[in-house]
Design a protein around this nucleic acid. Structure first.
Lengths: 107, 107
DNA sequence: CCTATTCATGGCAACTTTGCCATAAAGCCA
DNA sequence: TGGCTTTATGGCAAAGTTGCCATGAATAGG
């Protein structure tokens, strides 16, 4: 393995950290489908508007979403197509882990 | 979008959190190549052995790696193949973001 | 203009994560 | 057995994250 700089892994960690919260994963999932305003996303998440606004700022800062202002509204949309496939892969693997575990228990 | 339970996103967040640290990303990257013992990984990361051991426990708990004891050594190896492709995709997108940003600045 | 709506930000307390130290458990070998 | 190596765990202080409140800025509509 070619050794990579600490900065390299810090850059990756910034992206992973942005994903490391249930509400932000819900936001990413909701945006996958279509562009939405903060008011709609606030409704969806069920937290304070200021909390959701901060979550969105974190996702934007990580480069995972982008925004567009229209009058008094801000619409957010995904900027990255990597997430769906990643989670599909992760969930397949974790499900198989569970299966072989429970097989091992009942054996 | 079919609404998903909080538990669904918490499960995803557990995986994302495990990835959300530069040292753990370095560990995952090093293991991608081949199985390694804790002593070698400790060397690589350059932190205290107990710190590395805890990082590895977090990765194992998330289902991203598994371990195998051989005498006094513990060898860790990846359990998931989703990471390389995911990071390649993320890095491509972020690099393009940078490019269009600097184009916008110089324009 | 005044008010309502939408969104972002500062502040702060509660909680979580991190990393080192000390220490313990377990295998190896003389 | 005794000492050495390898790994895991408890403890704790420092640092980071989270969420709500209060508030501010900007637009839209009477």
């Amino acid at each position: 393995m070619k050794p990579k700089s600490p900065q390299f892994y810090e850059a990756r960690a910034r992206v992973a950290k942005a994903m490391a919260h249930p509400s932000r994963l819900l936001l990413l999932d909701a945006l996958q489908e279509k562009e939405r305003c903060v008011c709609e996303l606030t409704e969806l998440v069920g937290a304070d508007q200021s909390t959701v606004s901060k979550h969105l700022a974190i996702l934007k800062q990580a480069g995972l979403v982008e925004d567009r202002k229209e009058g008094v509204m801000t619409y957010y949309r995904p900027k990255v197509v990597c997430l769906e496939g990643f989670w599909r892969c992760i969930e397949t693997v974790l499900k198989e882990n569970l299966k072989s575990q429970s097989a091992a228990i009942s054996a």
